[in-house]
């Protein structure tokens, strides 16, 4: 019998090449630059510099605040919408969902530019409220990413859970707090992950609304554009660790609540 030379494992080759060239190698380069000085000697000086410089720490805090505020507002807007979309009884549910997700189909800079014009019209000059404008644009940009995972997790929620809550004497508010919210945690966490992390580094929005404050993304960009590979890399590495910790923490939390499911 003739042996087939095609192995399904071969299908992984294109991605493996991509993985090595564009993920693993750059990561090693980042780590190498992060732990060497301008002369190429092993050094922790970049680290020390980051954490001893008030301005870089300030940037980290500012990024964190922007991200936190954006995520919180997205959460507050998206949760009720996702709930109504998932549990409401009306026709053309999918059309409504489409309306909320449709902005994702339009180019991101185009969307922000349009929003910018509207804000300029309302405020006169965007420079008056840089922080608020940043938040408005960020929320607008990231909202669909918050709605989708929440919608998905809420559609899977069995209605009889909510009925059981009411049956056991809980009023609407108590059902929300003791049943609905705890059961929505997996959806909330995946929504938060989709918004919080990108929001920390998305400096394009800040640029576009003339917010001159640096956030993590713009800080890295500015170092790299001035060929300071070492400092740029160390910040990337710090951000990487930050994100890694966040992901592990949320996975723990999701793992705990999902452990109760199954």
């Amino acid at each position: 019998m003739k042996k087939s030379y095609f192995d399904r494992k071969l299908l992984a080759i294109p991605y493996m090449i991509f993985l090595v060239l564009f993920v693993i190698l750059p990561l090693l380069v980042v780590i190498y630059y992060g732990f060497t000085d301008a002369q190429g000697h092993m050094s922790f000086s970049n680290f020390v510099a980051f954490f001893s410089n008030g301005r870089t720490i300030g940037t980290l805090v500012y990024s964190f605040v922007i991200s936190l505020v954006t995520t919180t507002i997205c959460l507050l807007i998206a949760y009720p919408i996702a709930f109504i979309l998932a549990k409401g009884e009306y026709c053309r549910k999918h059309a409504f969902l489409m309306i909320f997700v449709l902005p994702m189909w339009i180019n991101f800079t185009l969307r922000i530019t349009a929003l910018k014009e509207i804000l300029t019209m309302l405020e006169g000059n965007l420079a008056y409220y840089p922080f608020m404008n940043t938040i408005i644009c960020m929320v607008y940009d990231f909202l669909p990413f918050m709605i989708m995972p929440m919608y998905n997790s809420l559609t899977k929620l069995d209605d009889s859970m909510l009925e059981a809550g009411a049956d056991l004497g809980a009023n609407k508010m108590q059902v929300l707090i003791h049943v609905l919210l705890p059961l929505s945690i997996p959806g909330i966490i995946s929504g938060v992950t989709m918004v919080f992390l990108p929001a920390m580094t998305n400096y394009v929005v800040l640029d576009m609304v003339y917010n001159s404050t640096y956030i993590m993304g713009s800080l890295i960009g500015s170092y790299f554009s001035s060929y300071d590979w070492n400092n740029g890399s160390v910040i990337s590495a710090i951000l990487l660790i930050f994100i890694g910790m966040f992901t592990i923490a949320t996975n723990r939390l999701v793992g705990n609540t999902e452990g109760g499911r199954a």
Partner: peptide, 20 residues
Amino acid sequence: PPNKRPINTVFQKYALFPHL
């Protein structure tokens, strides 16, 4: 409403709260 009725239900798929 259900929470005001002195009636309790055993649901078909039990509807136990998985987070508790």
